[in-house]
Design a protein around this nucleic acid. Structure first.
Lengths: 200, 200
DNA sequence: AGTTTTTCTTAAACTAGTTTATTTTTCCGT
DNA sequence: ACGGAAAAATAAACTAGTTTAAGAAAAACT
């Protein structure tokens, strides 16, 4: 049972990697050996601001909320990471500076973790992984740019509709106030948008 | 004279690359051979929405404005690329889909261009470049994430002050209305912010 | 199953930023 | 150096989203 779960977690990450690079069986084994397994119960923190982020995370089960709290005490959700998502505090992990994000499990969750040393060893021993992560970051960049633009040019209602159509499977798993914090509006205003939309 | 300019452009890009990877003289020559030179006069377009972006750009002189125009006709500046900056429409270049940005020279400008084929050949022949671009995209991602967060949690006045302190050398080269379009506010409101700040 | 806590809804007063319009200043091509 | 065009300043009326507050619904913890 435990073994089965572990295997399916590895299957998921190997499938994820296989979208961009082909690995031999030995390479797969090395990659797996560099991953640590982690888990968090609902409401538990995976990461907190202040210390350096030691890992990047690949979610295999559940849902993590990556967010920060600004000086006015307002929460801003950077992303919801569900199964098959990579996440972490990139800036902290990469530059080894104190991280600024909370990562909290919204559901009982499981994930695979890779440390900076393993990351470097991976690039060194299997240079193909540079390609994989180059692609991953390139794609993340594209979607961040898109989201930045949307944040600037669209109304909250439009952003809400885009989120619904782009991530319907996430939208119905999370609290409305968390979604509001992702959209950059108050829960009250999201509630108003929803009631306005349903009357139409 | 022409030759000197060309050499200094190559020097600049090699210096830029050298921040992350070391190249042999042969590798430098191959890299240089894969770059095309380009230039644009003030007000001239380097790229327009609609067609697929064929190149990524490295600016060696002048200043490019990368922007889009939303359905309300409002201009949104994604970045100002001055000397030593990489730019382009990543999504279009990478996914070979129609690009959505304008790139316009704000000053007489010069740049080096790399095509998708050259890009692939570069990765193939000098795998170290995967590392270079992985780093470049990782860093771009970090700064985009930061900017997204600022756009969400700070007031226009705060964002203006941050821009001034982070890019003073860009701030005093560009028009106020272009900066307003970067900050995501109207030129009128930026004008009000400035007059308010100077009275303090 | 019942109670406590969290989340969602609704509504009125409020604020940061927009719009529109007019005037003044700066810039740039000849 | 000048004349026209673009950019910047100022101000009043306006709107998208916030704040505060209070009640209703849902979810979570014994």
């Amino acid at each position: 049972m435990k073994a089965h779960d572990t295997e399916s977690a590895y299957d998921l990450i190997l499938q994820n990697v296989a979208r961009f690079i082909d690995l031999t069986d030995e390479e797969k084994d090395l990659f797996k050996s560099l991953l640590k397994k982690g888990s968090a119960r609902r409401k538990e923190f995976v990461m907190r601001p202040g210390k350096v982020a030691l890992y990047e995370y690949f979610v295999t089960k559940g849902c993590l909320k990556v967010y920060s709290i600004d000086r006015n005490g307002v929460e801003h959700v950077s992303m919801f990471a569900i199964e098959d998502f990579w996440t972490g505090d990139m800036a902290s992990f990469m530059l080894e500076q104190p991280c600024t994000y909370f990562i909290k499990a919204l559901e009982d969750s499981e994930f695979l973790m890779i440390s900076k040393e393993s990351f470097e060893r991976l690039f060194h021993e299997i240079p193909k992984f540079e390609r994989f992560y180059r692609n991953l970051y390139q794609r993340s960049l594209v979607s961040y740019i898109e989201r930045t633009n949307q944040g600037i040019s669209l109304t909250a209602e439009e952003r809400y509709e885009i989120f619904l159509s782009k991530y319907p499977h996430i939208a119905n798993r999370i609290k409305q106030k968390d979604l509001a914090a992702y959209l950059g509006i108050t829960p009250e205003f999201l509630s108003m948008i929803r009631s306005k939309m349903s009357k139409r």
